Amino acid sequence: MTSALKDLSDAGVSVWLDTLSRERIISGSLAELISSRHVVGVTTNPTIFRDAISHGTEYGARMSDLAVRGVSAEEAVRTITASDVRDAADILRPAFLASYAGQDGRVSIEVDPHMAHDTTATIAEARHLAWLVDRPNTYIKIPATKAGLPAIAETIAQGISVNVTLIFSLARYRQVADAYLTGLEKAHAAGRDLSQISSVASFFVSRMDTEVDRRLDALGTPEARALRGRAAVANARLAYEAFEEVFSGERWNRLLRSRANKQRPLWASTGVKDSAYEATKYVAGLIAPGTVNTMPEATLLAVEAQGLAAGSDVRSTYDEARADLEAIERLGIPYTEVVQQLEDEGVAKFQESWDGLLTATAAQLRTGTHRLHTRQ
């Protein structure tokens, strides 16, 4: 029997894990997922690190060392998260070296989400994180806000690979792709080797259904019920259509001749949030070559256990996807309003998680200080 995860990889979808912790690194759990379940990348975000540091016991010794130095919670967060990302990148280095143009085998680390609306601060933070982690197989995550767009272009121009996060709308996705191309053009003009620059565009999936379904349920009509669970996959499929268009035109071809890499679509938020849906919904419905699907471990294991039914090629579903979004709009659910709300909420949630991460770290620093005083 073949593995569904291997089948996914063979179809051109890179399987990444959407979680990281010190325990996962030192226990060998990450290495096991790489060796036996076709995992070739890792994504992180402030929520993942908040949960890891809040509930993990593996950070005690490091926290004690940081506490005796009197570092701030902010500095401790940067030190610890960069260390975890660095170690994970080392574990994934063989996958990085084996992948085409080093596009897999990567680990993502996010800029402080409080900088999401500050272009200059985001660029500076991206440079600092790239220096701090100091591994070629990392992505710096920058949110796709309006202020993030020029930051993406400038970070790429400086030769730093970027994971653009929190993309919800088709219009914003095209702006992100344009920012990437602009950055590549600037990098080429500066004499940089474009083959060494990589990027993914993280298009968030399940949250779209969560919000649209809520509004459909409020309508309560048969027409509304029939459209439940259709918005997210339709939205992502049309993003793939846009990807095909952007990375086939003359502007792209000029960069391709200089060995540039395509900015691959990455399907994020692929764990289902409605128990009525199959656990593999946002994997099975988005199989397309040249994409990444970053999954929580529960989703990864569900794919392995349940398999993936053969579905239609995403490229044959564009008309159906457009029809679904148009039908939802006709019911009085404005697409532009929904995606802007999701972007605003996404930034706010990551800011809240970042603040929780700082609080948890400060508490552990206090514990570390107490532990040292007790020993003395």
Results as ranks from 00 to 15, higher is better:
M208T: 13
A121C: 00
G271V: 02
G249P: 00
Y100K: 13
A151C: 08
A268Y: 03
F168C: 01
V107I: 10
A234F: 02
A189M: 12
M295E: 06
A288G: 09
F204P: 06
V42S: 12
Y335G: 02
R127Q: 11
L20A: 06
A61W: 05
T122L: 03
R214A: 15
R78L: 09
T221A: 12
E75D: 15
I25D: 02
L66R: 10
A98V: 04
N253Q: 13
R215I: 04
A151Q: 04
K273S: 12
T361K: 05
W16S: 00
Q364N: 15
F243A: 08
M1P: 01
A130G: 07
A88Q: 04
F203D: 03
K141F: 02
T19A: 15
R259P: 01
S206W: 00
A89Q: 07
A232D: 02
S35H: 15
Q263F: 04
E250I: 02
L255H: 11
R225S: 11
E352C: 11
K146D: 04
P136Q: 07
S36N: 15
K281Y: 08
A147T: 00
L227Y: 11
V292Q: 06
V133T: 04
A189F: 09
E244P: 09
D209T: 02
A151D: 03
S72P: 03
T47S: 15
Q175S: 11
M1L: 08
V303T: 06
A327Y: 06
G271I: 00
W131K: 10
E244F: 02
Y173N: 06
D209N: 10
T317Y: 01
V339D: 05
P150F: 02
K262P: 03
G229L: 08
V13A: 09
R86E: 08
S21P: 06
P136E: 04
L97Y: 05
T336L: 15
S353I: 00
T367L: 14
T145Q: 03
R192K: 13
G332N: 10
F49C: 05
N261T: 00
R24F: 08
A98L: 12
G56T: 06
L286D: 01
V314D: 03
F247R: 03
I167S: 08
A323N: 14
R366Q: 14
F243E: 07
N163W: 08
